[in-house]
């Protein structure tokens, strides 16, 4: 079989294959593709209260105290073998409410730690905790809390400490 004959056969086969392809292509026009879209309201986040550890007296012995604001009752507690003490003051965890499309699930994120500074070189690292990792808009789980804890010892500089951390909610 010479080369021209082989080429002819090949073209004929290719043409034969192409015909069914076109036939299939034309058949799909009778089957319309479905399209859909869901539009939801933007998610919002409202801060109802900040994270306040309150006032405390640092220990005078060589031991450490841990100051904790839990996400349950949001009360401040002092633990550890240091002889520090809490001073009567306003304290509490940070509370938030997520808003947006009712029934839409969302996730919550925040850094693991943030720093409190007294403006005079003193810095405290706060370990953050939160009441939930996710919630649903319009339900009770749309409200969540962030607490934290840090250690103090006799070398912790005195003063009024402040700082900031970011909290983010994202539609799932």
């Amino acid at each position: 079989m010479d080369k021209l004959m082989k080429l002819g056969i090949a073209l004929a086969l290719a043409g034969g294959l192409a015909v069914p392809a076109l036939a299939q292509n034309s058949a799909t026009t009778a089957s319309p593709t479905q399209g859909s879209a869901t539009i939801v309201a933007p998610i919002t986040l409202t801060e109802n209260s900040t994270l306040r550890f309150g006032s405390m007296v640092k220990p005078t012995n060589d031991n450490t105290n841990t100051i904790t604001v839990g996400t349950g009752t949001c009360a401040t507690a002092i633990t550890g073998t240091g002889n520090g003490a809490l001073v009567s003051s306003t304290s509490g965890c940070a509370t938030y409410t997520a808003g947006g499309e009712s029934g839409q699930a969302f996730s919550i994120s925040n850094p693991a730690t943030f720093n409190l500074s007294n403006g005079n070189g003193g810095t405290i690292t706060v370990n953050l905790t939160r009441s939930a990792n996710s919630g649903t808009i319009g339900q009770s789980s749309a409200d969540f809390k962030v607490g934290g804890n840090f250690n103090i010892d006799k070398n912790t500089p005195s003063g009024a400490y402040t700082g900031e951390f970011a909290v983010t909610v994202t539609y799932q």
Partner: peptide, 20 residues
Amino acid sequence: APAGAANSLRTGGSASISEA
């Protein structure tokens, strides 16, 4: 373009430590 799919804010934290 998650402009409305996420929202973030910064929260203040505070503590007052006194000298014994």
